[in-house]
């Protein structure tokens, strides 16, 4: 197991059994491969990595994510964001941008583009983690070791999972969680996408590193 480094780890995430197996670059490539090559139009893909908190409880936290966006940008545009909310999103994005590129760097025009609902949902996901037994979609998929496929606005809103409910609010119509070695691959789309074994096989092929 890896050693804890409080300067690098998120509050309660102290160990990760799989961090040495996953290199960030290959995770990013695999997530990209998964949705860029797909027939269906997925908005994003996230790898939730399994780890443990101090008490030994199983936890899923951010491993990596790839945001593709929507072919039809209008679909992910500001269904919920008021002008004040949009200003808030831009402010956060500017701060994150200077965190990454250094505060001395030139202001970046792209940062001042509207932050769409699905972009915001993706960004907020980076701060989240889930207990495996808490009933949410990623935990459910990991715990039962079987895929969870939720599509259609009513099913997302009423799935009993806070993350799915949030996804629905931010314009998603399909959310899928597929278990893999050491974690769960989650995909989301602003379109209704029917379950396909093709995608699940692809996840098994790309993410079962062991």
């Amino acid at each position: 197991a890896s050693t804890a480094d409080p300067t690098k780890t998120h509050h309660h995430m102290i160990s990760s059994t799989s961090s040495q197996l996953f290199n960030q670059e290959t995770l990013q490539q695999r997530l990209q491969q998964l949705i860029e090559g797909a027939r269906e139009s997925w908005t994003y893909a996230i790898f939730w990595q399994s780890s443990y908190d101090y008490s030994g409880a199983s936890l899923l936290g951010w491993g990596d994510g790839y945001y593709k966006g929507d072919a039809d940008k209008a679909k992910s545009k500001l269904k919920t964001a008021s002008a004040a909310e949009q200003e808030h999103r831009k402010k956060v994005l500017r701060e994150l941008n200077s965190l990454i590129s250094g505060s001395a760097s030139a202001p970046d025009d792209a940062v001042d583009e509207e932050v769409t609902d699905t972009e915001w949902f993706f960004l907020v996901s980076m701060t989240q983690s889930f207990f495996v037994n808490s009933g949410g979609l990623p935990g459910q998929a990991f715990f039962s070791n079987s895929p969870v496929w939720v599509c259609g606005p009513e099913r997302l809103a009423n799935s009993g999972c806070e993350r799915a409910r949030q996804g629905h609010v931010f314009g998603l119509q399909t959310m899928v969680c597929i278990p893999s070695a050491n974690g769960v691959v989650e995909l989301g789309s602003t379109e209704v996408i029917a379950q396909s074994s093709d995608l699940m096989n692809k996840v098994r092929f790309l993410f079962n590193f062991n």
Binding site: H10, Q24, Q28, D64, G69, L96, I100, A110, F122, M126
Partner: peptide, 26 residues
Amino acid sequence: YVAFPQARKASLASFLEKRKQRAMNA
């Protein structure tokens, strides 16, 4: 954001970079 963990930082950098590319291509 000081304690923003490494994995998230890498994800964020790639998200921002691709966002910049999308804005330029639009």
